[in-house]
């Protein structure tokens, strides 16, 4: 009689409810951090592109200058307002050193990002004709 009733029961036992609750809780606990990570990934991607644009822009300004003005411009280099407003705690580092021909300027931009590497771009500034002629007159290397 008892077996017959058990086979026809239409409800759920407490154990089944607890199991269902546990499974759903596990799914929720697993999915919630994924959403947070997704948000971080979205921001990180945008910030990386902005950083890349900013370094490209700065390098574009520097490499289009006449050779004599580059050194001073590198010393006075500052992050643009546009990038400063969008990249948290951004810092722009620069290095100007002589290369085989002309000079090599390396810009590196870091910002508040725990994992990604900084954006680093290097440009070459070749001496213009007047500079080459003046150096040749002095008998030195360009």
């Amino acid at each position: 009689m008892s077996q017959l009733w058990n086979s026809r029961r239409g409800g759920a036992s407490s154990l089944e409810c607890v199991m269902a609750f546990t499974l759903l809780s596990s799914v929720l606990a697993f999915a919630a951090p994924l959403l947070v990570k997704h948000r971080r990934l979205v921001n990180s991607q945008r910030e990386y592109r902005l950083a890349l644009d900013e370094v490209s822009n700065q390098l574009e300004r520097l490499t289009s200058l006449p050779g004599g003005e580059v050194e001073q411009a590198v010393e006075q280099l500052q992050l643009s307002e546009f990038a400063a407003a969008r990249l948290p705690e951004a810092k722009l580092q620069r290095e100007l050193r002589p290369a085989d021909k002309g000079r090599q300027v390396t810009l590196s931009l870091t910002w508040e990002q725990p994992t990604a590497a900084p954006v680093v771009l290097t440009g070459w500034i070749f001496p213009d004709r007047a500079e080459v002629a003046a150096t040749a007159e002095r008998g030195g290397q360009p």
Partner: peptide, 14 residues
Amino acid sequence: EIPVDLQVVAALGR
């Protein structure tokens, strides 16, 4: 939430 943000600086004739 996803705004457009772009600034391009480019030198003429390079």
